[in-house]
Amino acid sequence: MTAYNVLFLCTGNSARSVMAEAMLNVLGEGRFRAWSAGSFPAGKVQPIAAELAQAFGYVEPLRSKSWDEFAGADAPSMDFVITVCDDAAGEVCPVWPGQPVTAHWGVPDPAKAEGSEDDRRRAFQQAWMMLRQRIDLFLALPLDKLDRLSRQAQLRAIGQTAGDEL
């Protein structure tokens, strides 16, 4: 069985995309290899995002990195590229080798949360749960039985419907 390569994109690559990377790598159980990147990486991962990933069982170091690392000829060929912030969805992305299926799963930015430490943690937990719901739906798709257009439609539908009940 070949693993599917998935790239999660966000502008800063400090919270949502790195949480999605960690989550899919844990839940995908070898069926998926996930990475994350940003168009303008912050250079550091938000501490609460790293804490949530570690508590979930992700042991690899998370780092904020540029999407340029994944656009070169020596980069892994992506099967799926998913933007998780509205800014990244509106940006002109590089041309990804292999023409991956793309989708947008907008998630509110927990790093912009204001208020007490509890308020900030709650924002990160809400973003985590929204991503978890969407990744669970993604994992349930019979990808080996779907053609490219069906994969595209299913992936985009997940981004439009999941999380509405949170």
Score class of each variant (00 low, 15 high):
1 M>Y: 10
3 A>F: 10
3 A>N: 11
4 Y>C: 02
6 V>L: 13
10 C>N: 02
11 T>Q: 00
12 G>M: 09
13 N>R: 08
15 A>S: 13
19 M>K: 07
21 E>I: 01
21 E>G: 08
22 A>E: 04
22 A>Y: 07
23 M>F: 08
25 N>Q: 04
27 L>V: 00
29 E>V: 02
31 R>H: 12
32 F>I: 05
33 R>Q: 15
36 S>P: 07
37 A>T: 07
39 S>E: 00
39 S>I: 06
40 F>L: 12
40 F>C: 09
41 P>N: 04
43 G>D: 09
44 K>H: 12
45 V>N: 08
46 Q>P: 00
46 Q>F: 14
48 I>G: 02
48 I>Q: 13
48 I>A: 05
55 A>M: 07
57 G>S: 03
58 Y>C: 06
60 E>S: 14
61 P>R: 13
62 L>S: 04
66 S>K: 03
67 W>K: 06
69 E>G: 01
73 A>G: 04
75 A>Q: 08
82 I>G: 12
82 I>R: 09
86 D>Y: 09
86 D>T: 11
96 W>P: 05
97 P>S: 08
102 T>W: 03
102 T>L: 09
103 A>Q: 05
105 W>L: 03
106 G>T: 06
110 P>C: 09
113 A>M: 04
116 S>Q: 10
117 E>N: 11
120 R>T: 08
121 R>I: 13
121 R>P: 05
123 A>E: 11
123 A>S: 14
125 Q>D: 09
125 Q>S: 13
127 A>R: 02
127 A>N: 09
128 W>S: 07
131 L>T: 02
132 R>P: 00
132 R>F: 12
135 I>P: 00
142 P>R: 12
143 L>H: 15
144 D>E: 15
147 D>L: 06
148 R>C: 07
149 L>F: 10
149 L>Q: 15
151 R>C: 15
153 A>M: 10
157 A>I: 08
158 I>M: 10
160 Q>Y: 06
162 A>G: 14
162 A>P: 09
162 A>T: 15
162 A>H: 08
163 G>R: 02
